[in-house]
């Protein structure tokens, strides 16, 4: 691991991001549909208006021209305008960034904070009562889709008990403590649903990789040296078991930006995921392009970070 390596990897990231952007743009341009769904069935809108709209958005130009136009603007920091709302794409994203970070970020953190200790403890005593319970929840967590768990929570906590609101709004009433309480209250269900879903698979991975490590010779050696079980677990096992976990977390972190489309839809969380899905349904190419491109930058960045972390977790890994 050297600064030379880091520099080289960062330099490689530029052409690879460019390549990704070309593919993204091509996929979006070729994908069927256009931004004027409802206009089509409205008998009062003349056909020439629809055609003029397409032309004014440049939808009839060749794909490579549209790509270079996008790239050139992007290089100058111009993210373009949404076809649908005519608002600039960076503004649309920024409007939704705080909510996304708050809700999805919180659920990611929750998932990691819960999954790692639970996974480690479950693996430390496999097939114990604790392990069985943890496993059952994990299986339920990823067998049931979020549209289902979300609805279940709504029925119990909003409809039956009337404790939590169904709708997540950025305009919660109140001030001071009331405001904070309102803001937290409405985030409980979406964060739980997402946290459970993401945490569930993570628990399984952590458990499995701790199990792999725990039986390796050096762990037995450490034990035979009389080091306490807890210390063995934390110092020797977890660090070595973290490689797959780091990989997974690196894979999941960009989701903070990509959003969680289904959960955002159920609770009406105005995050980037819901922006992305409505943009996709409306074929609003500049918005999809903006969001996915930032998303792919994060994917590349976090995977790079993971590579660097591997070296720290296991110094024998030498990436050149």
């Amino acid at each position: 691991m050297s600064s030379d390596f880091l520099l080289r990897r960062l330099l490689i990231a530029i052409p690879s991001l460019l390549g990704i952007s070309v593919v993204l743009f091509t996929v979006l341009a070729l994908a069927p549909g256009d931004p004027f769904g409802e206009l089509v069935t409205n008998p009062n809108v003349p056909a020439e208006v629809r055609l003029a709209l397409r032309a004014s958005l440049g939808l009839d130009d060749p794909i490579y021209l549209r790509y270079f136009r996008w790239l050139w603007a992007m290089l100058q920091g111009d993210w373009g305008f949404s076809f649908v709302s005519r608002m600039s794409v960076d503004r649309l994203i920024l409007q939704r960034l705080p909510t996304t970070v708050a809700v999805i970020g919180a659920s990611q953190i929750l998932a990691i904070m819960v999954a790692i200790p639970v996974g480690v403890l479950a693996a430390a005593k496999p097939y114990s009562m604790f392990d069985q319970i943890a496993n059952t929840f994990a299986f339920i967590g990823f067998s049931l889709p979020t549209f289902f768990t979300g609805l279940l929570l709504i029925l119990v906590f909003s409809v039956q008990l009337d404790w939590l609101p169904i709708v997540y709004s950025t305009e919660v009433g109140g001030s001071g403590l009331t405001y904070i309480w309102n803001a937290v209250r409405q985030a409980i269900m979406p964060v739980t649903v997402l946290g459970l879903f993401q945490g569930a698979s993570l628990v399984r991975y952590v458990r499995s990789s701790v199990l792999e490590v725990i039986k390796l010779d050096f762990v037995t050696t450490a034990r035979s040296k009389g080091i306490g079980e807890r210390k063995v677990l934390v110092l020797h096992v977890v660090r070595n078991a973290l490689i797959p976990v780091v990989t997974l977390v690196a894979l999941q972190m960009p989701i903070v930006f990509g959003g969680a489309i289904v959960t955002e839809q159920i609770f009406r969380v105005p995050g980037i995921g819901s922006l992305l899905i409505s943009a996709m349904l409306a074929n609003d190419t500049p918005v999809i392009m903006g969001v996915t491109f930032v998303f792919s930058c994060l994917v590349v960045l976090f995977n790079l970070l993971a590579d660097i972390l591997y070296g720290w977790l296991d110094p024998r890994i030498a990436l050149r």
């Binding site: 690879s16 390549g19 990704i20 593919v23 993204l24 996929v27 979006l28 070729l30 994908a31 069927p32 549909g33 894979l251 960009p254 992305l276 899905i277 996709m280 349904l281 074929n283 999809i288 969001v291 996915t292 998303f295 792919s296 994917v299 590349v300 995977n303």
Partner: peptide
């Protein structure tokens, strides 16, 4: 790994619609 990153970044909905098409 570039390929993996690319696939991770692809927006699924438009991609799926394209594949169907």
């Amino acid at each position: 790994m570039w390929l993996a990153d690319l696939f991770l970044s692809l927006p699924q909905l438009p991609l799926l619609l394209l594949v169907i098409y």
